[in-house]
Design a protein around this nucleic acid. Sequence first.
RNA 1: CGGGGCGUGGCGCAGUCUGGCUAGCGCGCCUGCUUUGGGAGCAGGAAGUCGGAGGUUCAAAUCCUCUCGCCCCGACCA
Length: 588
Amino acid sequence: MRWTKTLIPTMKETPEGAEIPSHVLMLRAGLINQVMAGAYTYLPLGLRCLRKAERIVREEMDVAGAIELLMPAITPLSLWEQTGRVEAFGDVLIQFTVRRQNRKVHMALGPTHEEVITDLVSRQISSYRQMPITLYQIQTKFRNEERPRFGVLRTSEFLMKDAYSFNPSIESLDKSYEAMYAAYCRIFDRCGLEYLPVEAESGPIGGDASHEFMIPAENGEDTVAHCRECGYAANLERAEVGARDVVPPDVALKEMATVDTPNAGTIAQVCDLLRCKPARMIKTLIYVADGKPLAVLVRGDREANEGKIRRAVGAEKLELASPEVIEKVTGAPVGFAGPVGLKQNVPVWADRDVPILRNAVTGANQADAHLVGVNPGRDFTVPKDHVADLRNAADGDPCPRCSAKLSLRHAIEVGHVFKLGTKYSDALSARFLDDQEQLHPIIMGCYGIGINRIMAGLIETNHDESGILWPMAIAPYEVFVAPLKVTDEPTMRAAQQLHDQLEELGVEVLLDDRDVRAGVKFKDADLIGIPLRIVLGPRGLQEGQFEMKWRWDDQAEMIDQSTAAATIADLVRQERADGARFRARPGK
RNA sequence: CGGGGCGUGGCGCAGUCUGGCUAGCGCGCCUGCUUUGGGAGCAGGAAGUCGGAGGUUCAAAUCCUCUCGCCCCGACCA
């Protein structure tokens, strides 16, 4: 392809509004163009990357035995009503009504396709003989993001590969799940991504029923806890905290006393006022579990984890209490709850950090007052079986699997595999007959990959001050050919010939035939990040040599004009297959 | 949903507080000459209903009211 025949609007300056590297570089390199908040046009160069990522995903899905189909983006709203997800999605679900003659048709743009595929399967699969089967599609999804952000990372319309497995048994589901998990590893490996499969919230099936594939990145929206020692990795909601101190510090116990804390209803305000550290405070949260209120104690500098609390108390549904309930339980307005002297006798649970606190600070269960010198065991007690790991992991916490420490890292979620169970097959009556003529709901798994995020994630983790560094497998073009003087006939002839030969050898070439100065070509080449750059300039041409340089190397090397095409094609093929040079590049 | 910021040729910005002349600057674009290995120089040129609507005024990019759009931060933490 000739540069002048396609559309590559590179920019020298960063458009206002773009902040994170992937967004800035995708705009500057002419990969995308913003149409509105959360919706982008993929320009020719960006589309090529997207298609390559899509192709790798498709190939590995096929290898894993998944079967491709294509569902519509528009779906009947009734399908979502049947599974209760109209409410679950809320405003995220883009729904609308159209008129058809004398009636109105209610539709929704699919944010995901469990309903549609389960509906299909409920009609077409009725025997254990038809399973297991994993069906997938690569399709545009629509979610009305409340706040689209970070360029292509969080948009209202995006390309997703979604797969669904249908199994007659848990064992069969486990196998399908493992096949997808393995396929995901191959996909992200081939894409040149450094990823981390992490344990995630597992929902109805429990156990290791869900993993997210995360790309550790500064600008990621998610947080994962990772142990570099043993490899344990989990997302923040899920991460366990390892063994903690059980012996309280040996300090003199102070008398408990009430102090005035007017209008200080937050941890920060109280600490400011009393000049104490959040770690010395006992945060008292009032929850409602299946309709019954309870109190949860967490150290002031820690975050309660609702998933852990819900599991610990064995509740179906858990939510923070309303201000009215809080007042009823504590006898005080919001902001002044504490474990000592609660007005109502509700169950009290505590995170493991709490019982070993000494001379702590906590709400006094009356307006504008806190207690100081509070000591668990003396001033209040929590039953042993009500002490558990109830908080989010924090940076430096002990690893639950070894003796090392957890580190918290931001990450971009690119993939998710999930053992669904029978939620949708129950709701939509997708049942099958086993070999004993017994009717069972089909057991499902679902598996998603955000194609756009593969691109953005790659850029986010692979760029330098000059621009993008693409791995060969995803690069929009594999070779960039730059004749420095396009008005010089022999130069252009050689460039065109190299371009044609490479294309014949199956290499994707971008020929920069613009009549611009060398510096412009070099800058743009670095910006758009094509892995191999071939320069045809006065330095080599007279000796029958081209200059070849990898995007991530500092030094170029000279190659023979006569054998250039074959040499380059070999390198490209090799790098395309294993990405070894990209991975081993200097500075990585 | 709460808070903050920004809308001025394709892109980045100044001008707005304190209303006034033909609305500027850099990049990009077009023409010509020179230049030619890391975003060239000179000369000439095209391109803007100052986000939109209404209002105040002799006069509005600038003041007032409403509105639309974009970006960032926060969102149950007692």
